[in-house]
Design a protein around this nucleic acid. Structure first.
Lengths: 335, 335
DNA sequence: GTGAAAGCGCTAACAG
DNA sequence: CTGTTAGCGCTTTCAC
């Protein structure tokens, strides 16, 4: 379906309202000083003509496109989505739209995307990625940039992320405070920063009670359910009387849960289990419902966008550094 | 980090190359007739100045923004992502970017988004949604529109989607061709078109062999794992000697698998199970690995974008109707 | 082949 | 308070 009537411009509105185009602009944008009367007259005319300002022309004249670019290395995946929702949430109010690009984790491609976004005159850029591992900086960019989730290796960039260590620390603390004493940690691959940081969190919580994490019960593996199942078996066969397991992801936790059930171990009575991510699909499918750590990705996105907006409007320039937000433990039935 | 050197314009390039701005435009865009020599000179100058054309200005002058809007009702969810990947895939070649908006399934909001996109002068719009259920048309829009996944109720719109019925038909056919005779169907909510169509597919496949789907073995429930678990129990308690189960989603299938395992039923030897979606997370976590139907969402997105591009370039106007693409059975270990 | 000129639709600076 | 005047950076006739 297509409608080819020519669309109204400021000139048409001006003519109908009996004023000049400049006045129309001021009236509709609420800038400058105008009599309430004129303003009303213009608004009426605009409404009558169903006037929609031409965004492109506005951008060219004002130098702002009211668009921010988002470059992700997560292929629009599970981590990017909540971050995007947060970004949109805080941008929508300012009538700012986003342009999502998938860098596929390739620095060269990311750089091209950045240049393309710059060519499109975006007002700012958010860079986000799969997981926590630090990433290369985009380098010099003529507009403000904020990194979310994956921190930039350049300390002059602003990175906003969550606190892995704190997340598992809270999880382990919960286990300890409900009487568990012998904890195990089931991580993802050791090469992933998140795996290592989350282990430290468990150790911290134990240390606070004068306890230690048995190195044999601190394991690295994959980010998968099947690794979780294997890990459950390993824990049970270890001969150690484990009564609580902190997992580095909900997927792993689900595997652990399944593994334990197959060995007729009752959760949470015999062993309590905590996950990480608060990923609804995993959490809801798990039996019992999974107690897990929520990194609040959406609010990270919201914060990134808010900072970016402030920088764009010139209120507050971006200053480099790491912002690390706490996680929250969501208690359900597994611990 | 920020770099405030003024960026080069066509005028700068023109001056350096010793030609006029108009010539620069022609040389860089490969239009009109120019001597190879001049063209080279201009390209050299552009490179020397690291010239990046201002997209906004180009849009204003040419009337095309090389941007298409995508309105989804799926909150950037699981169904939108593959579709988006497909769209990007086919658009990227033409240097076209996308603007993703979340309509949250609210027709009013969707309409606002559409107007906003039109205000931003997008060249075309793709409308996509959660699942298959038909949706209201956006109505009159001054640019080409293509609906993907959720078909438009207006037959004058072009809708591209996959064939639910065919999907489960292929699944059931596979079960029958490997010797199963007594099939059950575990659907999602009956109010969802997909649930009903997928049931029909199973019936068709059975009919082709002179068999029927026992109404007691055709069930509707939820799109969840826990419903799948319940359904497995129902099937086993039915007293019917079921040897194959077609599920309306991978999540349901996973639940069915878990339910069967708990009753010590062996899959696929005792009962074979097929899912729907080919959703990696579910498929990989399932035991045994799930045989399932792939609706090829990505290629639907690709096709939608290709059609849209053709319409934008004026090659081929959008004509209304439904395009329904077949699904593909992906055989793994559960059937 | 190439240059000059007009203009896309809007905003912004400056008069009045 | 409001109108006029210049552009924003590019494309695109149309002369030459």
């Amino acid at each position: 379906m297509s409608d080819s009537r020519r669309v109204a411009t400021v000139r048409d509105v001006a003519k109908l309202a009996g004023v000049s185009p400049g006045t129309v602009s001021k009236a509709l944008n609420g800038v400058g000083q105008l009599s309430a009367e004129t303003r009303a007259k213009v608004q009426e005319a605009a409404a009558a003509l169903d006037f929609q300002p031409n965004h492109t022309a506005r951008s060219l004249a004002s130098g702002r496109t009211f668009t921010v670019g988002v470059i992700t290395s997560d292929s629009f995946g599970r981590f990017t989505i909540p971050v995007m929702l947060g970004i949109e949430d805080s941008l929508a109010a300012g009538q700012v739209s986003t342009m999502l690009c998938d860098g596929r984790g390739d620095p060269v491609r990311e750089h091209q995307l950045m240049e393309r976004l710059i060519g499109r005159q975006v007002d700012g850029i958010v860079v986000t990625g799969r997981r926590r591992d630090p990433r290369q900086s985009l380098g010099r960019v003529p507009v403000p940039v904020v990194y979310v989730l994956s921190e930039s290796l350049d300390p002059d960039d602003l990175s906003i992320t969550y606190d892995d260590e704190h997340g598992t620390q809270v999880a382990a603390h919960h286990l300890l405070s409900t009487g568990r004493r012998h904890l195990a940690y089931v991580g993802g691959p050791e090469r992933h920063l998140a795996s290592r940081l989350r282990r430290v969190g468990v150790e911290r919580a134990l240390a606070a009670e004068g306890l230690e994490l048995d190195p044999n019960l601190a394991m690295y593996g994959q980010w998968s359910e099947s690794w979780g199942r294997s890990a459950a078996t390993i824990v049970l066969r270890s001969g150690r009387s484990v009564d609580g397991i902190v997992c580095a992801s909900d997927q792993i936790a689900r595997g652990v849960l399944d593994g334990l059930r197959e060995h007729n171990v009752h959760v949470p009575d015999d062993i309590a289990v905590v996950g990480f991510d608060n990923w609804d699909v995993m959490v809801q499918g798990a039996r019992p419902l999974l107690t897990t750590v929520d990194p609040h990705l959406e609010s990270l996105g919201r914060e990134a966008a808010t900072r970016l907006l402030a920088a764009i409007q010139g209120d507050q320039p971006i200053e480099g550094g790491m912002v690390t937000r706490p996680c929250e433990l969501v208690i359900r039935d597994s611990a």
